[in-house]
Simulated assay, not measured.
Amino acid sequence: MSQFPEQHDKVAQHYDFILDFESVRLSEYFPVELAITTRYIQKYIPNCAIVADIGVGVGHYAELLARRGCLLYLVDITQQLLDATLTRLRTKGLEQQIQAINRASVTNLECFENEIFDAVLMLGPLYHLCTLEERNQAVNEAARILKQGGILFAAGINRLTYLRELFREFPQLASARKEFHQQFLQDGNVDPEHAPPIGLAHLTTVAEFRQLFENKFEEISMLGVESFTGAFQKSLTELPESEVEAWLDLVEQTATTPEGLGMTDHFLYIGRKRVEF
């Protein structure tokens, strides 16, 4: 019997199925997301920090942190992603930076003691928690395992990206999905039938995402990592380095504005655990 709730198992199966795409998703299709997130990790997570990377993907950020001397604790509900990250770091000669690998849910991190991490990354798990109770559990677990003043990186998906992609690819479905869309605008939840690329998922709003963290964390930054580049960010891979950096500077300059947050695909919340006296 699985150690996870049924919905979490379905998410794990989804990532097993799309592993090949996930292996190249950031580098080939979403380079702005990768580059801007990297900039902020470099800015707010110091060298040699103790970091829990929860929802490791294929290890892009784990590799970045390992190269900076960080000690890594890797967590995912998908064994194939954990294996891919281990292989990535082993191939790069960085395996010694891995302190532990755990197949676990972000809602239950009993594998970790209280207040042991300088930073926690949740760059994906919150997408797939379809109830507020689960999302609160994840945030509470992040706060529990972080040291006082520790840093949280958490990603969310802009609710309107589903509607944009449907309008772009299947505009004839608006009437047929009218009832679903009214519910979606209220709860932000999608499923494999309506959004096959992401499966069971929760898409959020700026206000909702901010509110999720306010009791446990002080906000450092809330940004739209793609800002205006949105669905066109693959163009970045075709440019010379000087143009790449110029565009990334513009993305970063606009990422925290209402306009940048409104146009982005992904929100990135960076917060500091509130100090309790």
Rank of each mutant, 00 (worst) to 15 (best):
K216M: 11
H8N: 02
P5R: 14
G271R: 08
S221V: 10
N189E: 03
K234W: 10
V24P: 01
N140G: 07
R274T: 05
G156W: 00
K43V: 08
S27K: 14
M122S: 08
N189Y: 02
L71E: 15
L129N: 13
R272S: 14
D265C: 08
M122F: 09
L121N: 00
G93F: 02
I220A: 09
L129E: 10
V24S: 03
I151C: 09
D16E: 09
H14C: 03
Q3C: 00
T38K: 14
A154Y: 08
K234S: 11
Y29G: 06
L82Q: 03
N108L: 14
L121H: 00
I50H: 07
A49N: 05
L268K: 01
Y40G: 04
R168T: 12
G150T: 00
R274K: 11
L185N: 07
R272G: 04
G224I: 04
G55W: 01
L223M: 11
E276P: 04
C130R: 12
F184I: 02
V51E: 07
E208V: 10
S235F: 14
E218M: 09
Q183A: 08
L121W: 00
D16G: 04
E245T: 02
I270L: 00
A62S: 15
N215R: 05
L109S: 09
S221G: 07
Y40P: 02
R25S: 05
R135S: 11
N140Q: 12
E193D: 11
E219F: 14
Y15W: 06
G150S: 02
S105T: 15
Y73V: 08
L34D: 13
G69R: 03
E245L: 02
I145P: 03
L126G: 00
K10W: 12
R68H: 00
L223D: 06
L121K: 00
K92M: 04
L64R: 12
R210L: 13
N215C: 02
L173Q: 11
Q233P: 01
L185I: 09
M222Y: 15
I36V: 15
E226Y: 04
F232K: 10
V11I: 08
S23H: 07
D76M: 10
R164F: 12
I54N: 10
Q7K: 13
Y127P: 03
A246F: 05
N47E: 05
H194L: 03
R67S: 00
N215H: 07
I157P: 05
R39I: 06
L236N: 05
K178C: 10
G57V: 08
A52S: 10
F167A: 14
D265R: 07
N102F: 14
N108Y: 15
R272A: 13
L200D: 15
Y40C: 05
N102D: 10
